[in-house]
């Protein structure tokens, strides 16, 4: 009888179970209740307080004696819809004066706020862990590129600012981004996943064996084998895991009746570089060192501009980001503190 009269579904879990919201993780209430994690969001969302209350299923101007009423009713009334909705019915009834249009504003504000919190949450230790579980269960789909051999993708945004672009899928095998295959994702804001998550995920979980396809799903997720090949590290990544879908034999070679189309033809290949990779990956490290020596000025500029622009200027937000970077930015640090929980 009483699946509905049990625990009412929270706003968060009902939001995450909506069609098209399959990529979202359920943000923990602990994360949301820590004001520090919400720094700077007050100004970005209309009716912030109400939206936050809605997300947390808190009744506006709530008193604790509500809880007692609920319990009494549960015993008296045989489980009808009112019980199922629990506290929310009470809240809405009491605030009869609240206009319907207000509620829809709050609802859309709550979605916006949840999305922005989500962007931060999935880059936290607890959040990225949840996303890795979703990744392992294949919730984010696979790369459509034939030579990526069904590598699992990660949801990302091309911007951190809401309203600019929809969610995309980042493929760790070709390091490219794709439009999700189903149109229901084309209404999901990319900023709710953000620019950082995809690459941070790879740095946080360097042990995922990306060189295996999702078709070999069991082996796909096993830890690195101890046999030497590809186990050397390159800037915190296993060389084996740096774009395994690229390089010789992974580049499409146009042919007509078996003959290669020449580069010199007007219709000849022009994009091979995009899917290319040095046969010996350590070349990249050397090239980087050489590049640094040759044009150290350029690199400095680069880093400076990143530092300046990559972080919101809001001082506390910057501190927040900095702190998070200290926790998660280096794969080594994450590995070392892996057992600690964030909160």
């Amino acid at each position: 009888m009483s699946t509905s009269s049990g625990v009412p579904e929270s706003w968060i879990s009902s939001f995450c179970s909506l069609l098209g919201h399959e990529y979202f993780a359920e943000v923990s209430e602990e994360f949301i209740e820590d004001d520090f994690n919400l720094t700077g969001l007050q100004t970005q969302v209309a009716m912030y307080k109400e939206a936050l209350e809605m997300i947390l299923d808190v009744e506006p101007e709530d008193d604790d004696d509500d809880e007692d009423e609920d319990e009494e009713e549960d015993e008296d009334v045989s489980g009808d819809a009112r019980d199922g909705l629990g506290g929310r019915t009470h809240g809405e009834r009491r605030h009869h004066s609240r206009i319907a249009s207000d509620l829809s504003v709050i609802e859309s504000s709550a979605e916006m706020l949840y999305g922005l919190i989500h962007q931060r949450f999935i880059c936290s230790r607890a959040g990225i862990q949840i996303m890795s579980e979703k990744y392992e269960m294949g919730h984010f789909g696979v790369c459509p590129r034939t030579n990526c051999n069904q590598t699992r993708t990660l949801p990302v945004g091309l911007s951190d600012i809401p309203g600019e672009d929809t969610v995309k899928l980042f493929c760790p095998s070709c390091l490219d981004v794709y439009v999700p295959p189903n149109s229901r994702f084309q209404t999901v804001d990319g900023a709710f996943f953000g620019r950082t998550f995809g690459a941070l995920f790879l740095m946080t979980f360097p042990e995922y064996d990306l060189s295996k396809s999702a078709g070999e799903s069991v082996t796909n997720l096993t830890r690195a084998s101890t046999t030497g090949d590809g186990n050397e590290m390159l800037n915190g990544m296993y060389a084996r895991n740096l774009a395994p879908g690229l390089g010789p034999n992974k580049i499409y070679e146009p042919r007509i009746y078996g003959f290669r189309v020449s580069e010199m033809a007007r219709s000849g290949p022009r994009m091979k570089w995009l899917r290319d990779k040095p046969a010996d990956i350590t070349v990249l490290d050397e090239a980087r060192r050489a590049a640094e020596n040759a044009q150290s000025d350029d690199d400095d500029d680069d880093d400076e501009s990143m530092n300046m622009n990559g972080h919101p200027g809001h001082p506390s937000a910057r501190r927040l980001r900095q702190q998070r970077r200290n926790q998660n930015g280096s794969p080594m640090a994450v590995e070392a503190n892996g057992a600690e929980s964030e909160l």
Binding site: T196, A287, H311
Partner: peptide, 15 residues
């Protein structure tokens, strides 16, 4: 170009 908090990821950037 993959980024983390605005920074290019070194290995990917080198590629």
């Amino acid at each position: 170009v993959p980024r983390v908090y605005g920074f290019k990821v070194h290995a990917a950037a080198a590629l």
